[in-house]
Design a protein around this nucleic acid. Sequence first.
DNA 1: AGCGGCCCTTTAGCATCGCTTCATGGACGT
DNA 2: ACGTCCATGAAGCGATGCTAAAGGGCCGCT
Lengths: 299, 299
Amino acid sequence: MDVRQLRMLRELAERGSLSAAAAALHLSPSAVSQQLAALQRAAPVPLTEKRGRRLALTAAGQALAEAAVDVAAALDRAERAVQEHLESPAAPVAVCAFHSAARAWFPPLLEAVAAAGGPPLRCSDHDVAQDDFPRLVADHDLVVAHRPSSGPPWPRRTVRVVPLLSEPMLVAHSAQHPLARSRTLRVADVADQPWIGVHEGYPLAGALQAVAVAAGRPLEVVHRINEFFVAAAVVATGRAVALLPAHTTHPDPRLVLRPLEDLDVRRSIDVLCRPEALHRRSVRQVLDLLHAVAAPPAA
Amino acid sequence: MDVRQLRMLRELAERGSLSAAAAALHLSPSAVSQQLAALQRAAPVPLTEKRGRRLALTAAGQALAEAAVDVAAALDRAERAVQEHLESPAAPVAVCAFHSAARAWFPPLLEAVAAAGGPPLRCSDHDVAQDDFPRLVADHDLVVAHRPSSGPPWPRRTVRVVPLLSEPMLVAHSAQHPLARSRTLRVADVADQPWIGVHEGYPLAGALQAVAVAAGRPLEVVHRINEFFVAAAVVATGRAVALLPAHTTHPDPRLVLRPLEDLDVRRSIDVLCRPEALHRRSVRQVLDLLHAVAAPPAA
DNA sequence: AGCGGCCCTTTAGCATCGCTTCATGGACGT
DNA sequence: ACGTCCATGAAGCGATGCTAAAGGGCCGCT
């Protein structure tokens, strides 16, 4: 039972002649005639009959034509099904972020989305090696990722990148640290300090590398700590310095965060997603709210 | 949006892998892959994605697959639509009969069909030239027709013929007629009477012709009257004789109806219909009841 | 880590199908 | 009786959907 043939039957029913139906379908009368003949083969009783020189439907044909209406309607709905899914506010939106971004933005984002009557959120934190961030888009609609601004960009082929924030990376040292005495900080001032770096391959490894390049020699990395709040606690002991993000680091009276005068070290915080993810209205809405939430304080 | 492609998508959703879907559809995996690719072209977002080495549906694909269920259901209903129409007790059955049959059987048939909970009836009387009876099946499900038993049969090619009754044709003459004095009636007795015939081409013309043939000479047909009750009234005047059917003629004390001893003149009363008309349960039911109603009195 | 198997995709080639054009045969109106 | 309109059938062509075979990714096994 072919949909095209059913459509032809309906057209014949409504137009009253095979020629008119063919014209409406942009086909030759012969084509319609042949297809109706094929449809007839599957039916035990005649569906059409000649009335004068026109072709008309029998009662059985009319019964079939009426059933064909439902088929066409169901097909219409199927064609819209994907689009409706894209517009649907009921489907959850999965967001993931690296730890510090998650800590800073998940709470206000959940509030904002709820306040806006947005979709249900599925939040999860994932801190992975830089190369692994793009793969997270397979399981999450929006992936908040970061990388050193000086490093290699995200692979534009496979993921869409929406910039969220460009955040300065500051040198963090203890308030009691000798560096605290100098008014400004330069690369040369910190090049010989014991550093806290991140694990190999993790996003901000390149940031510290930029300092080393500017200093002209390798830095002494004595600790490898990915979590900024852990690193901050170690920095507070005064036994090492670290590069910490300006905005997303929790204020701590025991720490001093200062920029390097002669080197602009930054990290880029971006939202990665599959291109098709942005087709979903809900995902766009969450992304917009994420932008609002992540906007650096006006002050 | 092709139904076959939607079916493949559903099968993929339910079987969990393209190969399994292909096997279920009795197709090669390649065919399914190509058709799904074609379906994908019509969608703005991916419908499938590789999960491990299997192919799985995305959320959008699942939305479409669900819509495809309705399409399949509607198609199923369409395929049954014709059959259901054939079984439907609601569709009216159109019956037509020549006048005397209509007068005799329409009332009891209506009663019988109503008593049996049968379909609504559309009765109409049509007395037409013999050649025109077969054409009536275009507008009526059942056509009660008659013809001289000795004449040409109905065209079996175009219509189905269901015998209803074989009815003797009797010579009708006035009770006061000289013929009333003879104990039996033979062809020779009536060959010289003034006859009432039917109009040219009408079904029972051939019956009178049979008498003429037996007599070996043309009969003198002084009146041409199709309606038996009109003919009966004229016969009652004693001025002419006629051939009238044995059972469907209304009893009249002024008339005598007697068979010819040496010639069996009969008419066949048949039901004509299109072959497909008998596919309808309702039509068969009415036909059965018509048989019961038309059964000659047991006496 | 290497390897074999499973699964999906791609390509090429083939059979079928559906369409158009052209020709034929009825039915209607003039 | 003719011309017109309508539906159908035959022939041919292009498109489509299939199979088979080759290719590549992913997994599990050793």
